[in-house]
């Protein structure tokens, strides 16, 4: 027992990892009041709700948390963030956990959100602007092509109301943007 406690107490690498991402710095100030969970519109879907997510980071439960679906349900509504009495920015902490989960290859297959985020990033990197139709098609092909059929009426509605162009928009300064993004990647993320 004493041995486990000492081991857990010593494991601060996870919390340090979160603190190193912009927005994650204040996590140590959490008082576990639960206002974040109470404010979250999707908390009932999370494997571990927001308050517990923060407790798990501090307990060093890296693998359990990173492979959970929790942070992928964050809708970035920032209700938790404006209500948190300790200003710890829970939504930013969820973004930090998403970054770490993707970087370490632990992101869950039970949520389609990590795949959607990747499709989105590929689209933004590829054209300099997001091509929404291309991104949606890629997402459905990668996850569940049959789900696309269910959504066809929405897509067709948007298309017939001139809201789904068939051609992507591409910026002129792609060379320059690629150089910027490649350099950012070379600098090793925000850490």
């Amino acid at each position: 027992m004493a041995e486990t406690m000492v081991k857990d107490l010593a494991d601060v690498s996870f919390i340090n990892e979160v603190c190193a991402i912009p927005g994650g710095e204040a996590i140590r100030s959490c008082i576990q009041c639960g206002v974040c969970t109470g404010s979250c519109p999707t908390a009932n879907q999370w494997d571990y709700p927001p308050r517990r997510v923060i407790a798990m980071v501090r307990a060093g439960l890296r693998d359990e948390l990173l492979s959970s679906n929790s942070m992928w349900f964050c809708v970035s509504c920032y209700s938790c963030t404006v209500r948190c009495p300790r200003d710890i920015k829970p939504a930013d902490i969820m973004h930090a956990l998403e970054i770490i989960a993707i970087r370490s290859g632990k992101s869950t297959k039970r949520s389609k959100t990590p795949t959607m985020y990747r499709c989105f990033v590929d689209s933004a990197r590829g054209n300099g602007r997001v091509y929404e139709l291309g991104m949606m098609i890629k997402l459905f092909l990668k996850t569940n092509p049959f789900a696309a059929l269910k959504l066809a009426p929405v897509g067709l509605g948007l298309f017939f109301h001139k809201r789904l162009p068939l051609k992507p928009s591409r910026i002129k300064g792609m060379g320059e943007l690629k150089a910027i993004l490649n350099k950012a990647r070379e600098l090793g993320g925000a850490k």
Binding site: H95, I99, V121, L181, R185, G189
Partner: peptide, 14 residues
């Protein structure tokens, strides 16, 4: 937000 949640430095550079 999606880029923000995959790589914050790249997203911020954009």
């Amino acid at each position: 937000t999606p880029y923000w949640s995959v790589d914050k430095l790249e997203a911020a550079a954009m």
